[in-house]
């Protein structure tokens, strides 16, 4: 396959790209392979040299590394540091990599030994507190979502390859939700984290009449005091709101700051 293409007469290199996973469900990598109609065009943008879920005999000579998953073990930390050393651009792929993801729910328990016993019984493995990539290395680019939205990844990767700037929506999901003509779920009695969560998913959940669980983390401005008031005035228990805010890890610092 040819290694270059052109865009407006300018030569565009297909960057050598690798995909890796730490602790995750590998759902985000699966998303990379989804959307068959444009999959070939997508794969054609990149020179993929390492992708365990999709190919064998990976190489360790790459410029861009997409890293899915959170760090829960010492050997993952080591792998991540190695990837960082090699990659010019390190991309945190999905909410586990960005915030710890669903995995970080276990951090809620004070006694991690007990958690280990509950999960692994008599076959314990070495695990530690769940942490996002940015706790260990510099992350150049984050792609939010649990799972990531392939349409958004396509746009981001195209801009990455072309060397254009990448700007996530700074506003909350509500903007996309109302643009789509949805009727607000609060009117129907359902809680939703749309007012505080970063947009970019095109209001995936509310479009399907499910309240947002905040998988993409906080918007640039997220008014938690007001969120609390909205939940209270709609008789939604504090715990139900906290369950959502805690689910993917994006709001952990906000929860710490929240008044009791």
């Amino acid at each position: 396959m040819e290694k270059t293409r052109t865009y407006l007469g300018v030569e565009i290199k297909r960057p050598r790209t690798a995909f890796f996973e730490l602790s995750s469900c590998e759902g985000c990598q699966l998303q990379i392979l989804n959307k068959e109609a444009s999959l070939f065009a997508f794969l054609d943008l990149l020179d993929i040299v390492n992708f365990r879920e999709a190919m064998s005999n990976g190489s360790n000579d790459y410029e861009i590394a997409f890293v899915e998953g959170s760090v829960t073990r010492a050997d993952e930390e080591e792998r991540l540091l190695k990837i960082r050393k090699q990659a010019k651009t390190l991309v945190a792929l999905g909410s586990c990599a960005c915030f710890g993801g669903v995995n970080q729910l276990k951090n809620r328990f004070n006694d991690l030994e007990w958690v280990k016993k509950e999960v692994y019984g008599d076959f314990p493995i070495e695990t530690q507190k769940v942490r996002p990539l940015s706790d260990f290395v510099t992350v150049d680019l984050s792609i939010y979502g649990c799972p990531i939205k392939k349409e958004e990844v396509e746009e981001i990767v195209t801009n990455l390859v072309l060397g254009k700037s990448i700007d996530h929506p700074r506003y909350p999901v509500c903007m996309e939700c109302t643009a789509n003509g949805n009727i607000c779920l609060f009117k129907l009695g359902e809680p939703c984290l749309g007012p505080v969560t970063r947009a970019g998913c095109d209001a995936w959940c509310p479009n399907n009449r499910v309240g947002c669980w905040g998988c993409r983390g906080p918007a640039d401005e997220a008014n938690f005091d007001q969120l609390q008031e909205i939940m209270d005035s709609h008789n939604i228990p504090r715990q139900a709101m906290l369950d959502r805010l805690e689910c993917f890890g994006g709001f952990s610092s906000a929860i710490k700051n929240m008044s009791e």
């Binding site: 909350p172 007012p195 008014n223 005091d225």
Partner: peptide
Amino acid sequence: GKKCMSCGSCASV
């Protein structure tokens, strides 16, 4: 300003 969530719903509708 303290109340507003900067969500844009007002302009959308």
